[in-house]
């Protein structure tokens, strides 16, 4: 394809910024997302109540002491992202209109947070996202419908059917995953060089 070809389903992630038009703020981060939270708390803080959900799981550095010092708000810490997401679902059940949501971490984590919010009618566009740590992808095998997580290379082995999948840039928000398509379907056995391109 010509230079400039870009699949528009691939999300663009930006840096977290407070949005003052709110009744409350929820910040959800995991692993290296801790750094994004620290950066957020260096900005002028909004007046409304802030709740921070953080799980250190998967972090390269220990951000917890810095977070505990910097976050002048309700900071809730969880050992695993599963526990964090469970607490997030409980929180959403009691949340009111005007809640602003900020999330940082791996792509999978951010879309898990967004999915949970969608169950309460919160639109994807109202969840601000900052990708941190790794570009690793979740990949949906279009043939056997399994998801393979933590994919860091252009071609991945499907965890369901074992096929070698070419990882496309086509992204489904509902699945939080990129499409994987059998790479050697036209010429069995011809698998291109596998390269680590999503470190």
């Amino acid at each position: 394809m010509e230079r400039g070809y870009w699949i528009r389903s691939k999300p663009v992630y930006t840096a977290l910024l407070w949005n003052d038009k709110a009744t409350a703020h929820a910040v959800l981060a995991a692993g290296d997302g801790g750094l994004a939270v620290l950066k957020l708390f260096q900005q002028a803080l909004p007046e409304q109540p802030i709740t921070v959900f953080y799980s250190p799981a998967g972090a390269d550095k220990d951000y917890l002491p810095a977070l505990q010092a910097a976050v002048d708000a309700d900071l809730r810490v969880f050992a695993t992202t599963a526990e964090l997401l469970a607490a997030w679902a409980d929180y959403l059940a009691t949340a009111r209109m005007g809640l602003r949501i900020y999330t940082a971490g791996t792509e999978k984590f951010m879309w898990d947070v967004t999915d949970a919010a969608a169950d309460f009618g919160i639109l994807n566009q109202d969840v601000m996202k900052e990708l941190t740590g790794s570009l690793a992808r979740s990949v949906y095998c279009v043939h056997c419908k399994s998801l393979t997580h933590e994919v860091t290379s252009n071609i991945a082995t499907c965890s369901g059917c074992g096929r070698q999948l070419f990882v496309r840039d086509h992204f489904s928000r509902r699945m939080g995953a990129y499409m994987g398509l059998m790479v050697d379907a036209e010429n069995p056995g011809e698998v291109p060089q596998i390269e680590e391109i999503y470190p």
């Binding site: 699949i7 528009r8 389903s9 691939k10 086509h170 489904s172 928000r173 509902r174």
Partner: peptide
């Protein structure tokens, strides 16, 4: 579940 721009992405 995709929107217009997403499914036409490719």
């Amino acid at each position: 579940g995709m929107s217009w721009n997403e499914w036409h992405g490719p």
